[in-house]
Structures are given as structure tokens and as C-alpha cells.
Amino acid sequence: MNKNKFYSFFTILLLIVVLSFCFSTAVLAHRVILYAYVEGSNLEIEAGFSDGSPARLAKLEIYDKQDNLLATGETNEAGLAEVAIPARTDLKIILKAGMGHQAEYQINESEIAKDFKQPADQTLDNQNSAVIGSSNELSKAELREIVAEEVSREVKPLRKQIAKLITEQEKPGISEILGGIGYIIGLMGVALYFISRKRSES
């Protein structure tokens, strides 16, 4: 092989790699990240791509352990969704962000409060509390509800931060990028080694 030829070609392509690498640190793409947590009787769901942009208007499907479809939903413009918990079992959330992008997230049964309200009896409960609320005393259930509400308000920023941390962590970092390039160069080295050995044997 003409050494000169190879080196100039090497430089050109390396330039392309380095150039693209400079762009790539700013914006990284292409994987859907899904994160969900329980808040009261709702599932709060966040969906985004690994470059940080939200997965807009993506379809959500919630399954139980036996893969029965329990509920569906859709994310809003900010990639967020709120879905009422359909049942107190292990839940599997599947996000379909179009063009073959799909992500999955599991919610354990233990994360859902024992006394979470089914979507149906929530309205009924509100009526009840309105009636009782007129008398000045708080029932145990009401107190629990108020405390739960306050706690979830306090915890919400924390949850948001955790969600952000998780998405940050799943972005491909510099070590993965350099590692991948290293593997490819290594493969080339192995191939060239075997060829040179074959040649010296013959």
C-alpha cells in the first residue's frame, strides 16, 4: 500500500471525525428515555430523547404483568403525561415515540399506595368530603389525604431532579464515544495483524 496515500486519507477522515465530534458534544440524539413515578393516584410520566428534547405527543400504553393493556395515554408538548393508575399491580409503561422508537419503564406494586383511589371513586370521594368538610372536624382519612398532598408537593422538585439526573446519566458521554472509536481502530489493527502474519508465513 502506498503509505503517503493512506496517511493523507487518514487525515481527511480524522478531520471529519473530529469536526463531527465538536458538534456532537452540544447536541446528542437518538434514544428515547422514559421515567415515571407515582403521585397519589396518578402516574407522572416524563419522556424525552437522549439529546434532551421532549418526546412530544407520543403514545403511552400501560400493561400489567400478564401483558394486558390497562390504560393508554399521550404525552403533551413538553413530553409529560399524567395517567390515572388503572390497578394496584406491577405496571409496565411502554412509550411509542414514532419511527420505531420505543422505551419501557416498570412500576412496582409496592410503589403504589395501598389506598390509592380508582379513577371512578375519586369523584364520589370528593362529594363525601364536601359534606363532611362542613363540620369543622377532620376525619382520619382527610388528614391523611392532606398530609399526602403536602408531602408530594414537597417531594415534587426532588422527583424532577431525579428525573433530570437519570436522563443526564443515560446520555452518551465522551468516554463512550472515544471508546467506540478505539474499538474500531482496534478491530482494524487485529485485521491488519492477521494479514501481515499470513503474508510473512507464505
Partner: peptide, 25 residues
């Protein structure tokens, strides 16, 4: 072999370059 390896490296990095236009990522 070197040519193929270098193009493979370019392809490997290329999909990290996100095009922030259009409806999806």
C-alpha cells in the same frame, strides 16, 4: 481495511449529530 475502519468510525460518531429541525429527533 484502514479505509473501512475509518468510515466505520465516522458512521459511529455521525448518529450523535442531532439535527434540531423538523418534528422529531
Amino acid at each position: 481495511i484502514p479505509k473501512t475502519a475509518l468510515v466505520a468510525a465516522v458512521l459511529f460518531v455521525a448518529s450523535l449529530i442531532h439535527v434540531p429541525l423538523g418534528p422529531t429527533s
